[in-house]
Structures are given as structure tokens and as C-alpha cells.
Simulated assay, not measured.
Amino acid sequence: MKNYTPIPKRKEPKTTYEHFCKSVKMTCGLDLFKGLALTLKEFFSKKVTIHYPKEYIPLSPRYRAVHSLQRLLESGNERCIGCGLCEKICTSNCIRIITHKGDDKRKKIDSYTINLGRCIYCGLCAEVCPELAIVMGDRFENASLARAQYAGKHELLRPIDEAKTHTQLEFAGFGSVSAQADKSLRPTPIAWDKPISLESTFEKVDSSAETGEKSQNSKQGDV
């Protein structure tokens, strides 16, 4: 076993004279001036506090807060097709979708609710959505008196006026493509080796069809 050396206890002043000497040492020592210097430094430094709720800290575009249902900019229709993937992948089991088949044999959404009091804001619903219909927004003020706070489709769906005026916000939020997505794409190794153009592919298809017709005609003539 290792022998541990106990730390000696701090010697406390016992007499009045020792208390007086300790107080004089702390008052006239460097500790007081170090504290004053730090206080003056922070007093004249740049302010980092904000006046909430009049001021807000800028949030990251990948911030995960209350969800937002997106619309199509051209028509203003909802992007959600009611596939139910977000409901199935939700680990908190807080998403509920009720749909029915319309006259055109397509799903119509009757109700889309999210229990925000149970949601852990993991962002899996936004990542799995094939239509980029649901993203994690930046509305972090979500205080409520009820423990189970439900958000309906009318609250989560982006208004048409906002979607048309702010075109750059169509895919804003966690789980959506970034604004620099087109520039970030890289060509495949095949494209690096031999670039393929549409004209060359069409010429190959036409030539193969002509050779096929000639071979069939020659076989029929031999018969």
C-alpha cells in the first residue's frame, strides 16, 4: 500500500494580535490590488451582455428548435406528402399524422401534431424527410403552462406570404440543404476520367439502333 502524506492543517490565528496581523497583511498585500485590477479591466472592456428580450443572440443555421413545415415557392402548396417517415423514426414518439386518400388517390393530411413537451429536438424527422417538408427552425422560446404542449399544423406551417417574400428561407433550418449545396457538389471519378455529354450518348444510341436494324434486315434477307 502507498503511504499518503496528509496535508497539514492551516494555522488559524488564536490571539487578537494574530488576527490583527492577518487582516493587515490581507489589506496591504497584493491580493487586494489583483482583485481591483481585474475589476477595472472588466469595467473598461467590451460589453458582452445583451438586453433580452429586446435583443437576441444570432443563432446558427443548424440550430435545432421548434419545427417548421415548408411550402413550395411556386405554388404555395405544402411540401408534406403524408408518408409518415417522420412519425416512424421519431424516438420520442411525439409526432402524430392523420391522413386520408383523396379523389386523386393521393394522401391528404387531416392532422399533423407534435408534442413539444416530449420532443428531444434530435432532428431525425428533418433528416429522414424525402421532400424537405419539415425542418428544425430557430424558435427557441417555447415556455408553456401545460406539460404536454401540442403544436398543430396551422402553427408549424410557414405562411404563404412569408414563403414568397423570403425566397432564401425555403430550405432554412436543420435537416435541409445548405445555400452552397450546388458549389459543394463534386463530380464522380467517372466524370473526372472521361466527361460524358448528352450529345455523345444520343449518338451512341442512334448508331446502336441503326446497326441493330441492319443486322435484322440481313438475317431476314438470308432467310
Rank of each mutant, 00 (worst) to 15 (best):
L73P: 06
Q220A: 14
L59C: 06
D222G: 07
I81C: 04
T27I: 10
R96Q: 11
Q180I: 03
I50K: 13
I196P: 05
F140G: 11
R10I: 14
S184A: 11
V177G: 02
K25Q: 13
W192C: 14
P61S: 01
L32K: 10
I160N: 09
D222H: 09
T165S: 12
G35M: 03
D182Q: 05
N77A: 12
G175H: 00
V177L: 05
A126S: 12
P8F: 13
Y4M: 13
H67N: 05
S23C: 06
C28Q: 08
T201H: 13
Y112D: 02
H100Y: 11
R147W: 07
I7V: 15
S23I: 09
L59M: 15
Y112Q: 00
L69C: 01
D206Q: 09
S176L: 00
S45F: 02
K14G: 15
E199S: 14
Q149S: 12
L124Q: 11
L40E: 13
F140H: 11
P6M: 09
C28A: 09
I196Q: 14
I89S: 03
T49N: 15
K183L: 05
F140R: 06
N217S: 10
P189C: 02
E203V: 10
R139D: 11
D104M: 04
I57P: 06
T49D: 15
L73C: 05
L72K: 11
I120L: 11
L156P: 01
L198W: 10
K34M: 07
I196K: 12
V223E: 15
T5P: 06
D222M: 12
Q70S: 05
K9S: 14
H67M: 09
I120K: 12
K41R: 10
T15S: 15
D193T: 12
C90V: 03
C90L: 03
N77H: 11
E78A: 06
A65Y: 04
S184L: 03
R64V: 04
T188L: 11
D161V: 07
R10K: 15
T49R: 13
K46H: 14
M136T: 00
G123K: 00
C129M: 01
L185I: 03
A126W: 00
I196G: 06
R10Q: 15
V205I: 14
S111M: 10
E131S: 12
V128R: 07
I134S: 01
S208A: 15
S207L: 14
P53R: 05
D206W: 09
I50A: 10
H51P: 05
C90Q: 01
Y56K: 13
K25Y: 12
S45V: 01
L156W: 00
L198G: 14
I81E: 13
E162S: 07
F20L: 13
K54Q: 15
V24F: 09
H19F: 09
L36I: 03
V135W: 00
M1W: 15
R96P: 02
A151R: 08
E42W: 10
G123H: 02
E55D: 11
H100F: 06
G35T: 01
A151L: 07
F20C: 12
A181E: 01
H19R: 14
L157P: 02
C90P: 03
D161R: 10
R139S: 09
D104A: 04
Y121Q: 12
L198T: 11
E18G: 04
S144Q: 04
K108V: 13
F33Y: 09
